[in-house]
Design a protein around this nucleic acid. Structure first.
Lengths: 114, 114
DNA sequence: ATGTGTTATCGTCAATCGACGATTAACGAT
DNA sequence: ATCGTTAATCGTCGATTGACGATAACACAT
């Protein structure tokens, strides 16, 4: 039986770098800026929230809940994926999206260090 | 004698709204997105950090530490001010900038709720 | 009153963003 | 093999961003 989150594989190995990576310095500046830029749009915040609540959603589900074209939603998802905050699980033509928890934690850690 | 932070007035009255305002919903989405957009640039993250460490800085100090024109830095500061994360204290032609702590807390709270 | 140091604003330019429709690709079912 | 369904990609358009130099505004000294 699939648990609430049948999207994200149990836990990615990179989850280790959470506490390891520096939280300031030039690299951290760019990392935080990239995260922030990705969520710097109301639609993407909303999508993130949708994914955070219901554990996995198909792109079409998201399109249904937003007054935007499918291509636009797909682009927003691409941006969220590009910084690793969101992950896609493809099974057939269907693609389930879900949040990548440790990336979100990393973002929170970066911001918390400010 | 001026304490480390002689910029920000003791505490703004709006500090109350920290716990009061909703942390999700459409308004919160837009609020978080606006914050994120503002810090969605490496230079602005760096400026924020400079202001977070040394409590108050003049614009010219920031210009000195960055490879950017004065007008460019001024624009970045304007963006940070526009979302309330940074505050300006004018005394003569000199303008001291500093972080607005409760705004930063609000941002962290919005993100933490994700 | 003039000058000096400081910051904001204006105008410009190339680059990026956000949205859309149209098309393509990928897979399952018939 | 063809058809539906789903999602990604492409091309386009107007709007916004990021950077700069030049200029204006401001307050303090002289």
């Amino acid at each position: 039986m699939s648990a609430p989150s049948d999207c994200c594989p149990p836990e990615t190995p990179q989850a280790v770098d959470l506490a390891a990576d520096a939280v300031d310095g030039e690299a951290a500046d760019q990392e935080l800026a990239a995260f922030a830029k990705a969520i710097g749009h109301p639609v993407r915040v909303r999508i993130l929230r949708m994914l955070a609540r219901k554990e996995a959603k198909m792109c079409s589900h998201i399109v249904d809940e937003l007054p935007l074209a499918q291509s636009t939603v797909s682009e927003h998802l691409r941006i969220l994926r590009s910084v690793g905050l969101v992950q896609a699980n493809e099974s057939g033509p269907r693609v389930s999206y879900c949040i990548v928890p440790f990336k979100l934690k990393r973002l929170k850690a970066l911001l918390e260090a400010m």
